[in-house]
Amino acid sequence: MKQNNSKEELDQTLKSLDEKSEWNQVDRESLKKRIFTDIDGKSTFKRNIQRQRLKYYMALAAVGMLLFLLVSPNLFSLGENGGEGLQNPLNEFDIKNYEQYAVTLQNENGYTKEEASKFAFEVELLKVALINKAIEIGIEITDEDAKKQAKEEREMFESGKLSDAEKKSIEETIVDLGITEEQFWNEYVVQTGAKMQLMIERLHDYHNENYPEMHWDDFANQIVGNFRIKEAEKIKKFKGEIGLD
C-alpha cells in the first residue's frame, strides 16, 4: 500500500494510532480484577514485590554483566596479525570495561551519570567476584569448549534469530573493534564472551551440585559479599580509580 508521510499526514496518522489498535477486552477486565484484588491485599503484595525486586536485581546484574563482556570492545585487543590474547585477565577489575559499560548505560539505557556509574561498578564487581570464585574452585575453560560455544552463537546470528537491534549491536562492535567478522567470531567471542559464559555456567552447575538447597541469587550474593571482605583493599583502590565514593 502506498502511503504518504508528509509532515501533516504523518501527524494525522500518529493521532489515529491509538484508535487503530485494540486491547483485548477480556484481558483488560481481567487486569482490572487483578489490580483491585491486589489493592485489597496491598500489604502482602508489597512484601512480595520487594522480594521479587531483590531477586530480579541479582539476575539482572548477572546477565547484564554477560552482555557487557560479550559486546565490550575494550576487553580484548587484537594485534596486527590477528589475536594477541587477553590484555586484561577476566578476574581483575578493568577500568575500560567499566567506563564503556557506564557510557552504554547512559547513552542507550537512559541512566543518569550517577546511576550508570553505580550500576556499572556493581556489574564489574559481580564479574570479578564470580570469576575469581570459579577459578578458586578449579573451573577451567578450554579453547575448544569456547570455540564450540562461539560457533553456536554465530549460527544463531547468521540464522536470523536475533532481533534487528541485537544484530546491529554486534555489527557495530565488529566495526568498533576494527576487526573482520571472522576475527570477531573466531577470536574475540571465543576469548571473551564465550569463555566468560561457560565459566559462569560451570559455576552455576557447581552451585546446583553442592548447594542445591540454596538459591542461585543467594549463592552469588554470598560470593560477592565474601569478595568484598577478602578484597576490600582492591575494591577500594578500584573505586578510587573510577572516582566512586
Partner: peptide, 18 residues
C-alpha cells in the same frame, strides 16, 4: 533501563527467538 541488557543477553545466549 533494567530490562534491555537482560533481553539482549537472554536472546543471544539462550538461543531464543526475538
Amino acid at each position: 533501563r533494567k530490562k534491555k541488557p537482560l533481553r539482549l543477553i537472554e536472546s543471544f545466549l539462550n538461543n531464543k527467538k526475538d
